[in-house]
């Protein structure tokens, strides 16, 4: 992580994640337009281009962009329907918002010199907490005290139930942590590894290996970007199903 004075190697794998003001060099207040603002705005722009501008033709026989938009719609819709059930479809726009934001932030973060908003725990923690609070409140609103049934597993023998309930409660409250850290960690780790290999590329002897490694990591990161967005969305659906149907 630190500057290596002797070997001429310069590792700055974390510099890409620094939040900087867009204009000037002042402190970062809550309203300051920063690179976070810029890349979030770009993701909004990309989503609008795909889902709004791409479908403006309303063609019966879609062109390419409209096909992709419809594919994304169908993909998320089917996922919500399959995992959360028929009555989970009401929350489809919410999950679609999360999925589209994450997938576009991840992909935009793969551009060289870009900033990955989803690599920040602050961002993913808010996303995960939003899901966690929504699901918990929804569960109590829809099922009342019956929502606590998800901690009390009736299939298990009576002696084991308190222990299982403890485990279930712990795992329930660990959910937002794993939910957010999984996304941020995957994004951060992949980008940092690419940066480390990029630093190795400065050494002539191993630069071919480093460049091949960067290429391979990049391909993996493209896959991971999509899979992490998918996993985030599908876990949201799973948690939502718990809120809608708390009986195991």
């Amino acid at each position: 992580m630190a500057t290596e004075e002797s070997g001429g190697l310069v590792f700055h794998p974390m510099d890409q994640f620094v939040v900087k003001p867009l204009f000037g060099d002042g402190p970062v207040y809550w309203y300051t337009p920063t690179n976070v603002t810029l890349w979030m705005f770009l993701s909004v722009l990309a989503i609008s281009l795909l889902l709004v501008v791409g479908t403006r033709g309303r063609a019966i026989v879609p062109n390419r962009v409209q096909s992709i938009a419809e594919l994304a719609y169908g993909f998320v819709y089917k996922m919500v329907e399959d995992v959360a059930g028929k009555d989970g479809v009401r929350y489809f726009p919410y999950i679609m918002t999360l999925f589209m934001f994450i997938v576009f932030s991840n992909f935009l973060g793969l551009l060289p010199m870009s900033f990955t908003t989803t690599s920040h725990v602050a961002v993913t923690a808010i996303l995960a907490m939003a899901v966690f609070l929504t699901v918990t409140i929804l569960g109590f609103v829809l099922n009342g005290v019956g929502f606590l049934n998800i901690f009390w597993i009736r299939q298990a023998p009576l002696i084991l139930r308190p222990i299982l309930a403890l485990i279930e409660i712990i795992s329930y409250f660990v959910r937002p942590v794993s939910h957010s850290v999984r996304l941020a960690g995957n994004m951060m780790a992949g980008h940092a590894v690419i940066k480390v290999f990029a630093a190795f590329a400065a050494i002539l002897a191993i630069s071919p290996f480093a460049i091949v490694a960067i290429t391979a990591m990049y391909a993996l990161e493209v896959l991971v970007s999509f899979i992490q967005a998918y996993v985030f969305a599908i876990l949201t659906c799973v948690y939502l199903k718990d809120a809608l149907h708390p009986h195991h």
């Binding site: 809550w30 920063t34 976070v36 609008s48 889902l51 726009p93 589209m100 908003t117 996303l127």
Partner: peptide, 24 residues
Amino acid sequence: TFPNQIFWLVVTLVVIYLILTKVA
């Protein structure tokens, strides 16, 4: 930097949600 990120994230999510539910 947390307040900054959280503020812009909330703005972004609300904008995306509105775009999706109203138009897309």
